[in-house]
Write a protein that binds this DNA or RNA. Structure first.
Lengths: 348, 348
DNA sequence: CCCATAACTGCAAAGGTTTGCAGCGAAGAA
DNA sequence: TTCTTCGCTGCAAACCTTTGCAGTTATGGG
């Protein structure tokens, strides 16, 4: 019995006689043999792994995305390797290089690198970016612009005119998007928007800004994410400022705990799970157009414009009104009841 | 210039003439060449990757452990691939197999598999188990037994005599440990311990148990982890039962949010970061005794007793008293002030 | 009975790197 | 000068699969 027969029993079972096949399998069983995926990858050019690089695994925003991506990948017979960059752009680049040859593609989630660096890296390994738009690269973004607009409009309808925005980390596309959208929404509603930041996107980041929020003399705050909102509420609390009685706070993400803190957080829900699934599928689709075992191997790169599709998926967001927002100093402009839920929608 | 020279430039720079070396480097730069780690692994038998399998990445207990392990590994020039099993033992086994040939070893964190399966798998790839003890395998455990004892003693000192334990998932070594220790501690203090479970180790798992906790007519509850404690408090709240006025609740883990909920959670702090670092180091140490490129390759397995060291690291835990525990119906037996902090200690 | 076809199986090259061994020239020692 | 030694580089095998091609045997049609 030849090695190639063994190989075929595992990778193309229909090509081998059922008898032989079961003999091989029995033998493999007793020997504890399993095909070496690394060696297989060497020749097929397909590892059946994909990488997922996130900024901070401890941020509760990511786990649902990760889990959704993992289960989607599993269905497609792929495995996902997750790694964490500690919000460090340099670590991001290094990880892409390290993963490049061990995976068939990488999901870049909320990358902090520059656009040009991302484009450059995309010539080395297929990339899909999440929460960012890079020309020529497939991406899935959650429409935080719309979410920020809804949040600001909600605050304005509650009678708030002096609003602060706690922006996110430098290099975050999402943060820029929120800022842009919040600014225009505030202007449209005759409200003043004070931007405070950039800040680390963590609970601590929000907590330490409480003092500055007080000094800014605003009656409402929109934060880059829920973690900062929760931290801010905590910080305001220890300054003796009540939420929402004196200051209203809106977060973004709708992480699990935002339902568990007191007051429960008003926030913009982002469809993290859907984003993870969509990103996996986009990567798999793009992957088909990459050189498998053909091409120049290790040094083989692909001209950016050769890509079949550079689809952009946009996922809708949705305002969830809970207890951290209340009427502003000028009284409520309208009752501000619960906003009709907006269905999760995929556009391209 | 020969390929082997290029190879040496990257893997053994001191063996090549500085001039040649820089010429190679320059050339590699312009060509965008980087050594193919998969191919290298094929021959050296070392991938410089390690796997980390956790039960549920969305459980805030894991991220600090993951991050600590990652940074420790990075210092040792290793990368960590994290994967999630959704609390599913079958997924655990499958992942070990999938990872086996792509990593130099695997960290099994809170595995739900049977001991015998773990031992069997350990013949295929080096394994270190976290939060579990498996004979013959290196492991790092947090002393939750001690933690549970401290928690029960704390409750008893507050005057509680009827205490419930919300146990964790089936197959969890930690849960058995907690139960064992809590039982003896309760008996020693003349308290009655009612065990309720097994339960999914999530917020929902705690929330849905509120009704049963009420029926059990206890005045205090120890839960398998913080997530369940938070869920339980939520559930009791919606039943109109006040914490800690009517029922005291103690969690285990001291996850970040336990400081942010109201009331702030009394809990047993576990040194997750230290555990992650210790596990990485143990794996690296064990790794030295494994057959690299020698041995029978794909089918090569190692007799369990050939292991150099089967060290067991135990990390101390610590009770953190916050606001979710208060005096029981019989009054406080002692003032129950803050317990002196126990330093993080590594024993073997 | 012969030929075409089908169903398997064996052969060998390829994929990118590492590494023991041998070769080569230069420098130093005798 | 001749012999060692040293520093560097080239050669080729090996790692474990996959896969196109060719070979073998059995089967069915003419």
């Amino acid at each position: 019995m030849h090695i190639s027969t063994v190989s075929r029993t595992f990778s193309a079972p229909h090509l081998v006689n059922p008898d032989t096949r079961s003999r091989v399998l029995a033998c493999a069983e007793t020997l504890g043999y399993r095909p070496n995926r690394a060696a297989r990858a060497l020749i097929t050019g397909r590892t059946h792994n994909m990488g997922l690089i996130v900024a901070d695994i401890a941020n509760p925003f990511f786990p649902p995305l990760i889990k959704a991506a993992e289960s989607q990948a599993r269905q497609r017979d792929y495995h996902i390797f997750v790694t964490d960059t500690n919000e460090d752009p340099a670590a991001e680049e290094e990880l892409v290089h390290a993963l490049a040859k061990q995976v068939d593609g990488i999901l870049l989630c909320s990358p902090r690198m520059s656009n040009s660096l991302i484009e450059q890296l995309s010539r080395e390994v297929p990339l899909v970016v999440i929460n960012r738009q890079v020309t020529g690269l497939p991406s899935v973004v959650m429409d935080v612009g719309q979410g920020a607009r809804l949040a600001i409009e909600h605050l304005i309808s509650l009678g708030h005119r002096d609003i602060a925005l706690l922006s996110g980390p430098r290099g975050s596309w999402t943060s820029r998007e929120i800022r842009r959208s919040a600014t225009t929404a505030a202007r449209a509603g005759n409200a003043e928007l004070t931007v405070l930041g950039p800040n680390p996107p963590t609970e601590r980041g929000g907590q330490t800004m409480a003092e500055q929020v007080r000094r800014a003399e605003v009656t409402a705050v929109l934060t880059y994410n829920d973690l900062m909102a929760i931290g801010l509420i905590e910080g305001l609390d220890s300054l003796g400022i009540a939420v929402p009685a004196e200051v209203s706070v809106v977060g973004i993400d709708d992480i699990t705990i935002s339902r568990l803190t007191r007051p429960k957080l008003t926030t913009v829900a982002t469809p993290a799970g859907a984003a993870g699934r969509a990103a996996v599928d986009m990567l798999l689709q793009q992957d088909g157009s990459w050189p498998g075992r053909v091409g120049r191997g290790a040094t083989g790169t692909v001209p950016v414009d050769d890509r079949r599709t550079t689809a952009q998926v946009t996922l809708q967001t949705q305002l969830v009104i809970r207890d951290s927002t209340g009427p502003g100093p000028h009284g409520t402009a309208d009752p501000g009841g619960a906003v009709a839920p907006i269905p999760e929608v995929v556009a391209s």
